[in-house]
Design a protein around this nucleic acid. Structure first.
Lengths: 261, 261
DNA sequence: TTTTATATGATTGGGGTCAATCATATAAAC
DNA sequence: GTTTATATGATTGACCCCAATCATATAAAA
């Protein structure tokens, strides 16, 4: 009857747990007990720990890997803040025509757009291009949507395809509209924290007639290292932030560039 | 207190259920009740119906979308046939060097290879290229693996990327080994049922030094319309079928081309 | 119209899941 | 070495999930 175990082993076991869940997509608690050879209580404790780090989502009876995907129903039910992202997504989807070619970026906000897009029933021949695995997964099989995925190097953290190949693949396309995410916005414009992402987004700008950035208010006044676009370069900002919040951050947009969600 | 409803409405509701689960990835039973406004009993009945059609996987407390992905633990636990695919996958993974560049095709068999690959701990700089969203999802974040995804049009049924762009993207690569799936094998060779897939695989053959096809015994003597490769063209067949089974189907392979799983 | 088939919701019993609590043995800190 | 902190497994009670059964109202068939 072992009662305490070195911290190191605990961490190793939790990493193992993360890998197990990632590999199988879903694991019931009892199964985890078997594989890790620990009691139910310990498994549950491990699950809350791993979930806190944001890599899995617990369900009744087990746990899911969230491959960078926010399982809407679960997270909502778990009492989290009512998602501004959902409202942003609704607003973005309203911008999308019934037919044409649009691009969807990676990131949880744009993933919400993909989700909301599946609500639309009036789509006929909408071509959606994305570099987001999550968006592709959600939109795969949606009626009225022809889905294309850009190639590229897989970035684990974003579950997105980036790099030279992705940029090269962009050259084949011309979009009616593109919906992009960002990690920070301030007076100067939109910025992102990863060079790969920023480079990709910069390469995308000239390929789209309309460029819509979708950022929730938490991104306000956050400066991240890589500049992506100035306010002049984008067609619209879709956000839940109010005008006064924007002005306080030094952002002043003409009415036709500001879409309040 | 409505007691019976037209068949048509039942079917519509079940399609709706499939879409709901697909969109959210996971839904608890209670949530489904709310959204479809039916009782728990009906939801459970619908779940078994939809699951029988193979689009979702039930879990304790809800249901998962299986985006063309076989949730190993769940399906194994549900008493299904002991997967020959797993043994094929083990055998395939043993062929993969610690470093180099390999290609993984779409299909559940190759997805099993991806899963098995995550078991390997000795990988250092293995470059994996795939056109399978499922494989990408599984391998994303695997240690020692640099993952690339080919671009292309998303085929719903296979959850794979195909078409002209995928073939074009192939041109940038040269593989040490490629692991491909097929839907039929007979005396003439390997065949597939979809033109897009067959075309893509034919384009891949010259890009790989070793071409390994992975097909389980159920594919024996099944003729599907689109020829992909003759036995001369491939480097190895990885299968659980025995030599005598192969011979009975008119397939005779040199020892170095036959890997028994 | 009459008959049959069936989709539905309610109920019930059995079992599984979960969070909280507790004693304990061992790691870590002193 | 002594003390403190903590990771573990067992237990408990409440809650939830599930399959099976049943009566019923209505669709579908005759």
């Amino acid at each position: 009857m072992v009662m305490r175990v070195p911290q190191e082993l605990v961490d190793l076991r939790r990493e193992e747990l993360r890998r197990l869940i990632r590999r199988d997509g879903f694991l019931p608690v009892a199964e985890i007990c078997r594989r890790l050879a620990v009691s139910e209580a310990t498994v549950r404790r491990d699950l809350v720990a791993v979930e806190a780090n944001g890599h899995i989502t617990r369900t009744y009876g087990g746990a899911l890997a969230d491959y960078n995907s926010s399982f809407a129903s679960v997270t909502e039910r778990s009492g989290r803040a009512r998602p501004a992202k959902a409202r942003i997504a609704e607003c973005a989807v309203a911008q999308i025509p019934r037919t044409g070619t649009v691009f969807l970026d990676a990131g949880t906000t744009i993933e919400a757009v993909a989700r909301a897009l599946t609500h639309r029933r009036d789509l006929t021949r909408l071509v959606v291009v994305t570099n987001s695995l999550a968006a592709a997964t959600v939109l795969g099989g949606a009626t009225g949507v022809e889905l294309h995925v850009l190639g590229g190097m897989f970035l684990n953290r974003q579950a997105a395809l980036m790099g030279a190949q992705a940029i090269k693949a962009l050259g084949d396309w011309s979009f009616d509209a593109a919906f992009l995410a960002g990690e920070g916005m301030d007076a100067a414009g939109i910025s992102n924290s990863h060079e790969h992402i920023a480079g990709f987004q910069r390469a995308l700008l000239p390929q789209a007639q309309r460029v819509c950035f979708c950022l929730d208010a938490s991104k306000l006044d956050r400066a991240t290292p890589h500049r992506v676009a100035t306010w002049r370069q984008l067609s619209a900002l879709i956000t839940d932030a109010s005008t006064s919040q924007l002005v306080a951050a030094g952002i002043r947009l003409p009415a036709n560039k500001y879409l309040h969600a």
